[in-house]
């Protein structure tokens, strides 16, 4: 009786075939952009943020924050800085302060899905181009709503 010989490379190639999954380009692009920007956002949030927590020097004095962190947001800003906050100028106008830089890191993280969607849009088929396009418009509305509507 002839013995059936199985070559290791044949087994490997069958295994490779079984594992072969074609990842959709729009999913891959979405994931890749998200991966890179998340690292950038985390670094920008953590490094100045830790410096601020340790030194206490920033746009908002640490002592004042601690004294008033129990107040609702609107009352907090009126009491600590004497301002009403509508929009992003409260941290974008003070990028030399560590606490504001840390919030810029949050901004990068919060804009990451939008940029990933832009990347996915390029690779999507026509139906999904429309759906992702709507998502992008909705996301842009979330970002610009306070500036356009003022509240």
């Amino acid at each position: 009786m002839q013995e059936l010989e199985v070559k290791p490379e044949t087994v490997e190639s069958v295994g490779a075939e079984l594992r072969e999954v074609a990842i959709e380009p729009m999913n891959y692009m979405f994931g890749r952009i998200m991966e890179v920007l998340t690292v950038v956002g985390l670094i920008v949030m953590f490094v100045p943020g830790i410096i601020y927590v340790v030194t206490g020097k920033g746009f908002l004095s640490r002592e004042l924050v601690v004294k008033n962190w129990g107040l609702k947001a609107s009352a907090f800003w009126e009491k600590v800085m004497g301002i009403k906050v509508f929009g992003y100028s409260w941290f974008l106008s003070h990028l030399n302060a560590m606490d504001c830089l840390s919030i810029v890191g949050v901004c990068i993280l919060a804009i990451t899905p939008l940029i990933s969607l832009f990347g996915a849009e390029i690779k999507a088929d026509s139906k999904y181009k429309v759906l992702i396009g709507i998502l992008i418009i909705e996301f842009l509305f979330a970002i610009f709503r306070p500036i356009l509507m003022g509240h």
Binding site: M45, F46, P48, G49, I50, Y52, V53, G58, L60, R62, V65, V66, W69, A73, S74, F76, W77, V85, F86, G87, Y88, W90, M98, D99, S102, I103, V106, C107, L109, A110, I111, T112, P113, L114, E138, F139, A142, I143, R145, P146
Partner: peptide
């Protein structure tokens, strides 16, 4: 959550002293 984050950020409801740790 990213979309909702922008709402909180625009109202100043984010403090580095709480978020970072």
């Amino acid at each position: 959550d990213a979309a909702a984050c922008w709402v909180y950020m625009a109202r100043g409801a984010m403090l580095a002293l709480i978020i970072v740790p």
